[in-house]
Amino acid sequence: MPALEAHALTKVYARHGQSTRALDGLDLEIPSGQRFAFLGRNGAGKTTFIKIASTLLLPTAGEVRLFGRDVVHEARAVRAQIGLVPQEGKLFYHLTPREHLREYLRVRGVGRETTEARTVELVEAMGLGPFADTPALRLSGGQQQRALVAMVLATEAPFLFLDEPTLGMDPFARRQVWEVIRRAARRGSTVLLTTHYLDEAEQLSDELAVIEGGRILFRGPSERLKSTLGREVRLQFSGGFSTLELAPFGKVISDRERITLLTTRSAVRELTELALARGVEVTVGPVTLEEAFLELVGRGIEEDES
């Protein structure tokens, strides 16, 4: 049985006489124990999906089942299985991170000894130590976010919803959070996360889905998303070429200082030799997930507009 199944999920927000279709007949299955990432632009429907699946919001049509339970009609049973890091959540200003972990676990019915053990473990694993006993009102946004994520991951809930969990964190903190999320998945939790950091999605997810206009444009591993471009290599030139000249070789992205070309392996030798002959600096690397994402979503928008 999949951990999560969504069928024909639709959500229409009707406010002030205007309606917005946030989800448009979305279908999705997430296997148990998987780390799954949702990618999409702002307003694509990621948070709406998480809110419905985590029993915060009612769908307009369709259904979501979590471990076989309907999130609308069996919400109580579903809530016993989940933990949620909301988008841009903040802490109780007067409590310390250690108190947040301890109190939240106790409120969820976790026993005292287990609570203490998990609090110690998460404070260590998430690098909260230096500020674990400082009231939240004196913490930076990134430190607060780390404590919030720790508080929810400490629940060891079978299904974890993480809506932009590393928002505002420095790169060191982000890596610590990644490791704790991986550990949660190894322990058996299914993780659904949304992020705008594509490197994070690549590092953390077994599979990902790209969502645009409330519909899924792509679902699969990040490598497969990159392969949908049909171009595996990115060449960056410091100048010396015109976009017209490079256009036959692939997709050209030009800014003031550099020209980026997404192309096939077969074109690399010819172009690097040409660049060397012209004395132009050239950098060669694999296409990134961000490029594949931009291409895919860009195509989706064009199709919608046409």
Binding site: S54, T55, L56, R76, R79, A80, I82, G83, L84, V85, P86, Q87, E88, G89, K90, L91, F92, Y104, V107, R108, G109, L148, M151, V152, T155, F161
Partner: peptide
């Protein structure tokens, strides 16, 4: 403002316990 009620909704805590608390 703090999105904290949502963290309690998505948990085994029942509304009555939250309201009473």
């Amino acid at each position: 403002e703090r999105q904290l009620q949502q963290v309690f909704v998505a948990s085994p805590l029942r509304p009555l316990a939250y309201i009473l608390g």
